[in-house]
């Protein structure tokens, strides 16, 4: 059987499947026409179903993209950074000296500037020890 020569391929497909016989070419054209005239999806139902699925797939792709692992990782890292900043700020505040006076304890009430400075320096005044009060010189004599 003579193989088909591409350089001589005519526009009609049947001529590329038949030999040089004109009768064969016409017969092939009829066969090809019969195949091409078949409607495998005459109502277009399958075509519509697949079209709808494709539209759904495109939407799903978008949702997937929006909630993909990269976005989720970004949100997680942001949350961790915010939590760390808030925790650090809170911990820093906890080391501030508490200079609120205790109005029920007479000795804790800073009545003088020295006493206030002692509290600000986090040095609790020892009221029984006169040496702890820089403005008062203890002579040892009462």
């Amino acid at each position: 059987m003579k193989p088909y020569d591409e350089s001589e391929e005519p526009a009609k497909p049947a001529a590329s499947t038949a030999g040089s016989d004109t009768g064969n070419t016409a017969s092939d054209e009829r066969i090809i026409a019969r195949f091409r005239q078949i409607e495998f999806d005459p109502q277009g139902r399958i075509k519509n179903r697949i079209r709808l699925n494709l539209a759904g797939q495109d939407n799903k792709t978008g949702v997937k993209h929006l909630f993909g692992y990269k976005a989720a990782a970004g949100v997680l890292v942001s949350c961790l950074i915010i939590f760390a900043l808030v925790y650090r700020q809170d911990s820093h505040d906890s080391h501030q000296p508490d200079i609120r006076p205790d109005y029920y304890a007479y000795y804790n009430f800073p009545s003088t500037g020295d006493e206030a400075m002692l509290l600000l320096n986090e040095t609790p005044p020892d009221w029984l020890d006169y040496h702890r009060f820089p403005g008062i010189q203890f002579t040892g004599k009462i």
């Binding site: 193989p3 088909y4 591409e6 499947t17 038949a18 064969n24 066969i31």
Partner: peptide
């Protein structure tokens, strides 16, 4: 190969012609 495709197509169309 292109020649192989041409040969197979010719042979196949011959079969279909006979069937029809």
């Amino acid at each position: 190969s292109e020649s192989n495709v041409g040969t197979i197509l010719s042979r196949t169309m011959e079969k279909l012609r006979q069937i029809f």
